[in-house]
Design a binder for these strands. Structure first.
Length: 116
DNA sequence: CCTGTGACATAAG
DNA sequence: CCTTATGCCACAG
């Protein structure tokens, strides 16, 4: 993938990965960023998710930080919607933190492999 | 072009 | 476990 194209569809890349997260699975901002080749710039992923508000189809609730903490829940309607969505997928959430994270963790690097 | 910003990550104390 | 500090990088204005 040419470097020049990295910045063009960055948001869409994030969306594409988020959309590929299987039901009942979650991943981290860093994992997505790493998969996109922008390792370390997990902030970009979070920011992209912030922009994903325009795209309701993006399962942003399946994207959490490294600790499995629902740091972005405040960005959902201001309620515990994010937690409810996760619990609806069979994921236990206690104190805004995903339980058994490793069990539910979905790594795009592994599941989607690395292209190029 | 420069500055601020952000739903993160990692390290250090 | 906590708080700070620093790196990180694309985007908006």
């Amino acid at each position: 993938m040419p470097k020049n194209l990295n910045n063009i569809n960055f948001f869409e890349r994030v969306y594409a990965v988020a959309l590929q997260i299987p039901f009942g699975r979650v991943t981290s901002y860093g994992a997505i960023g790493k998969y996109l080749g922008s390792a370390g710039s997990a902030r970009m992923v979070g920011w992209a998710m912030n922009a994903s508000h325009n795209k309701p189809e993006i399962p942003a609730h399946r994207v959490v930080n490294r600790k499995g903490l629902l740091t972005g829940k405040h960005h959902f309607n201001g309620s515990n919607l994010m937690q409810e969505l996760l619990e609806n997928e069979g994921i236990q959430v206690v104190e805004n933190q995903i339980q058994n994270l490793e069990q539910h963790f979905w790594d795009p690097m592994i599941e989607l492999k690395i292209k190029e």
